[in-house]
């Protein structure tokens, strides 16, 4: 009666509904993103020339950190109330289910970053020509960050430790995303073709989509053992 995707839809719908029941938690990554971006002009100087040069790196660094913020809870709350056991034992393919959970997480924590990015870009005096590249880059890069983060979250779910360990595990692995993403924006600012780094981001996303759900599922099983 059940195709492999039916479980996907059910879990996605449940996690989205849950996210809307906790609106405060949902808004946190977005606020964090805005806050980190706002801290840089305060720490550096409000000079447009300077801000324009650091903007790609600042925006991408802020996106990286804020998409990690909410990840700690991705599996922890399901682990704590026993829903995770029920998912693992539901008879559906676990990689598909964890992919649904990660997608739901990205939709409430990654997608808003993509949408609000032009606003912050203009605050850092990034020229409008580069906004499209920034958004496209974030659109291709943040799902990979969510997948990497989900693996880190699954590995640390059964532990008492907080999110510091999670960041230590995930940030080194996420450096290529940061490099390609920021470089793409840089190229667009200089009026050059940013398509190369964007292709690389897309390639990494597909690699992550095909391999990481298996790793996340394995990690979930380990943390339940």
């Amino acid at each position: 009666m059940n195709g492999p995707l039916s479980g996907f839809g059910v879990v996605l719908a449940r996690d989205l509904r849950l996210a809307f029941r906790r609106p405060g938690e949902m808004a946190n990554p977005l606020l964090f993103f805005i806050l980190i971006t706002a801290i840089f002009p305060l720490g550096l100087s409000p000079e447009p020339e300077l801000l324009r040069t650091v903007a790609p790196g600042v925006l991408w660094g802020a996106a990286l950190l804020s998409s990690l913020l909410a990840l700690d809870l991705l599996f922890r709350s399901d682990y704590g109330d026993g829903s995770l056991e029920q998912l693992v034992l539901s008879g559906h393919s676990l990689p598909v289910l964890v992919l649904a959970k990660t997608l739901a997480h990205w939709m409430v924590s990654g997608l808003p970053l993509v949408l609000v990015a032009p606003l912050l870009a203009s605050a850092l005096y990034l020229p409008p020509e580069a906004w499209g590249t920034l958004m496209l880059g974030l659109l291709l890069g943040t799902p990979t960050l969510s997948l990497l983060g989900a693996m880190g979250a699954a590995l640390t779910t059964g532990l008492g430790t907080g999110s510091a360990l999670l960041s230590l595990l995930v940030l080194p692995l996420a450096t290529p995303i940061l490099i390609f993403g920021a470089r793409g924006v840089d190229l667009a600012v200089q009026g050059m073709d940013p398509v190369g780094p964007l292709y690389l981001l897309a390639a990494i996303l597909f690699l992550a989509l095909s391999l990481l759900p298996l790793a996340i599922a394995a990690a979930v099983r380990i943390s339940l053992d």
């Binding site: 449940r14 029941r21 906790r22 109330d81 829903s83 056991e85």
Partner: peptide, 8 residues
Amino acid sequence: LHGFKAEL
């Protein structure tokens, strides 16, 4: 553990 969500 009861296996359901407290928010729902």
